[in-house]
Structures are given as structure tokens and as C-alpha cells.
Design a protein around this nucleic acid. Structure first.
Lengths: 152, 152
DNA sequence: CGTCGAGGTTTTCGTACGTCATCACACCTA
DNA sequence: TAGGTGTGATGACGTACGAAAACCTCGACG
């Protein structure tokens, strides 16, 4: 057998500790360091693993307010609007979606005043027909990356 | 205080490469390895850095559909509902929010059928008065973690 | 009132040691 | 033939530890 689940197991291990050494990963999965190294290189080249980041608690850094923006956009202006949102660094996620609204975006702000200012400056765009802002009261789960299924 | 911006710089460096070595971080910031090690330990103990993860491209792993669920929940049942959503591993983010709806959740699914099944099973909860699902057509930005401001 | 300096504390640094990642190559086995 | 393993060499890495530097506090003195 050629370790078809190794990649999934590798990713799951890294999800619990993204700075684990290749050796510890090898020990954990009963596989040689070389094999871990090869698979990881492949996963990175394929783009399955796009990089590594620390998980930062923005609350603790003073970004106390998270908001969900929903926008209705004039059809032809959609690319412009999403691009503009993408460039706002505090926009954590920006989605084009089906349904009542065309765009859903999630942003983080230092306080409600800062939030109001930034949102207002975004909404001045003439192509935004309607908008709706929900402030997050409690982030039950945020950007949780889930484990992959490993079939035996 | 010495090096008051070091922590912010450290986090920014790690945001661009979460597996960077303590030495390379030290070189980059003109600081000794030990200092990097100490500050990182403190940041982790304080919970500012909650861990490290690979950035996984779920699209490439067959999770092709992302959806945004919005729910109106019977007030007293809110904790139950959010807890239930939290335990659904494919729910990437779950927020309690102000506004028209009470809960906004983002989930990832293998296909629209799988999505429908899972969402239906969630929505059977009697305490969910109303729901609204938006399917993501295009993830312009997703879980982007932004750099911190460094004051001179 | 403002400055000085002794002291203790915190932060940073350099070194040393054992571990680690990477690479090349030969070997194994399904 | 393709994917996994082991070995050995080399330079990089993480951590522990003692020394040194920077910082803070507070009473004494001009």
C-alpha cells in the first residue's frame, strides 16, 4: 500500500500544530522523515497547503468589533466593489454570493466608531444599492479549519 | 520599555511565514534569537498567538461549496443552536449577531447535495424560526489575517 | 522642586549543545 | 517502475543558561 491517506493525516497533524518538526510528524505517523518531507513539498507545490500562519487573537490586540456587511450591487460594478473590499486590509473575508444580497463581507475594527467611519466610506460607492450591517456579539467559532476524513 | 514594537513586527513576520525559524526572524528584525524566542513564548502564553496552522485550500480537497447561513432563533434557544453549529465540524465560522438574523454561520461542503442534506438536518431544530442560505459564488478573500500597525 | 544614583528587576545577548532539515544516493518491494 | 526507506554529511535550528545591558523605583541631596 502506498500511504494514500498519508497526505490527509499529515494535514490533520499540521492543523493541530503548524510548527511541528518533520521528525515529530514522521514519528506520529510511523513514517520516515524523508517521506514526510517529500509529501509536504508536494502538497505545497500543488497548492493544497498555501502557507503557514500563526492564529492571531485580534480581540486581544484591540480589534474588538467584528461586523458582517451585506451589499446589493449594480451588476456591472460587482468586480469593482469586490476589488475595493479586497484591498481594505481589515476585511477578513469577502464573498460574492447568491440570494438576497450580492456580496457578504466580514471585517474587524478597533471600535464601533472606527467601524462606522470605515463602513461609511465603503458604502459611498454609487453602485451599492442597498446594504445591511450586522455586528458580531459573540464569535462562537471563527476561521476554524476542520480535519480531513481519513479512510482506512 | 525596550522594543515596544517587536511583538507587532514579530506577528507580522509570522503572518507572512508561520514556519519561519527563530533565527531568520531575529535577522529580519535585528534582534537576537533568544529575544525572539522569549517574546514568542510570551505571546503564546498570553494567547495573542493561539497556535499555528497550515493554510489549507479546501477547494483542492473537494470541498467545492461554501455557504452562508442566516438564522432567526427563539431567544432562549440561542446557546443550544450555536453550540450545535459549533460541533458541526464543517462550520468554519459561527457568529451571534445583531440585526435581522440572530446567527450567521459559514460552512464548507463537498457539493450542493451534501450541503442540502447537512443544512436540512440543522434546520429541523424547532427553535429556528426562519433561515436563509446564500451560496458563495466566488471567495474574493477568505480568512485573511491582516498585518498589525507598527508605530515608530 | 528637580536631579542623582543605588538597588533590584526585567530584557537582551552570546555561547554551547543536542536536535533538526535537506540533499544525494543506494536499496527495497509491491 | 514508482513510491517508500535508510544513511551520512552539512549547515541550520531551538533551547538553556549565565552575563551584560537597560529599565524602574525611590529616597537623599543640592
Amino acid at each position: 500500500m502506498t500511504y494514500e491517506n498519508l497526505d490527509a493525516k499529515l494535514i490533520n497533524s499540521l492543523l493541530s500544530n503548524g510548527r511541528a518538526s518533520l521528525r515529530s510528524l514522521g514519528d506520529e505517523l510511523d513514517v520516515s522523515v524523508t517521506t514526510v518531507s517529500n509529501h509536504l513539498r508536494d502538497l505545497e507545490e500543488e497548492g493544497v497547503i498555501r502557507g503557514y500562519t500563526p492564529v492571531v487573537d485580534y480581540d486581544k490586540l484591540g480589534y474588538d468589533v467584528t461586523a458582517v456587511l451585506q451589499l446589493k450591487v449594480e451588476g456591472s460594478a460587482l468586480p469593482d466593489v469586490t476589488e475595493k473590499l479586497r484591498q481594505e486590509k481589515q476585511m477578513v473575508s469577502v464573498y460574492e454570493v447568491t440570494g438576497d444580497y450580492d456580496v457578504i463581507a466580514i471585517g474587524k475594527f478597533t471600535d464601533t466608531d472606527g467601524m462606522n467611519d470605515q463602513i461609511k466610506s465603503i458604502l459611498t460607492d454609487a453602485d451599492i444599492r442597498e446594504s445591511n450591517t450586522s455586528v458580531v456579539l459573540n464569535a462562537v467559532t471563527e476561521n476554524e479549519q476542520f480535519d480531513l476524513d481519513v479512510k482506512e
